[in-house]
Amino acid sequence: MSTKRIFSGTSPVEIMGIKNLLESEGIECFEINKSDSSYVGLLGEIEIYVDESQVEKALTALKTYKSE
């Protein structure tokens, strides 16, 4: 299985919302948290990955999310 990063950010709340959106669209995703737990939101990012076969669908869902 090959995956691709489709989003990264510093807000755990935003990441959770995006993951919920993707999962509600039937898109499996996972996150890799590269943030420093001592400085949440300041150092490092949280990345969301999906399977390459679902990248187009995920990006379309993200465009809808960002336009709202």
Rank of each mutant, 00 (worst) to 15 (best):
T10R: 15
E68C: 03
V13A: 12
E56F: 09
E56W: 02
L22P: 06
D36L: 09
Y39G: 00
N33Y: 06
T3L: 08
I46A: 01
L22Y: 03
L59H: 04
L43S: 10
K19W: 02
S2A: 12
V13F: 13
Y39R: 15
I48A: 05
S2E: 14
E23S: 11
L42F: 13
G41M: 09
F7S: 07
I15F: 02
E14W: 03
Q54D: 14
S2I: 10
L43I: 15
V50M: 04
A58V: 10
S2F: 12
L22V: 03
S53Q: 08
G9I: 08
L42V: 05
M1V: 11
Y65G: 02
E31N: 07
K57Y: 01
K19Y: 00
I6V: 13
E23Q: 11
S8I: 04
E14K: 14
L43D: 04
K4V: 13
V40L: 14
E14I: 10
L21M: 07
A61G: 08
T60I: 10
T10L: 08
I15E: 00
F30C: 06
I18W: 04
E68I: 13
I27Y: 04
A58N: 05
E31M: 12
V13S: 09
E14N: 04
E31S: 14
Y49N: 06
E25R: 14
I27T: 11
C29K: 05
L43V: 15
E23Y: 00
F30I: 01
K66F: 15
T3H: 14
V50D: 05
E56M: 12
T64D: 13
T10A: 10
G26P: 10
I46N: 00
Y49H: 14
Q54S: 15
E56G: 07
Q54F: 01
V50P: 04
V55R: 10
E68F: 12
F7A: 10
E31G: 00
E23I: 11
R5S: 15
A58G: 11
A61M: 04
A58R: 06
T60W: 02
E52H: 04
E25A: 03
G44C: 01
E56R: 11
I32M: 09
D36A: 03
E23L: 01
I27S: 06
K63E: 15
Y49D: 00
T60M: 05
C29G: 02
G41A: 10
E56I: 06
E52D: 12
E31Q: 10
R5V: 14
A61C: 02
I18E: 04
G17L: 11
K66G: 00
S2C: 01
I48G: 08
D36I: 08
K66V: 11
G26V: 02
G9Y: 09
S35I: 00
S35Y: 04
I32Y: 07
V13G: 01
I18Q: 07
Y39A: 12
E68T: 15
Q54N: 14
E68P: 03
T10H: 10
K63I: 08
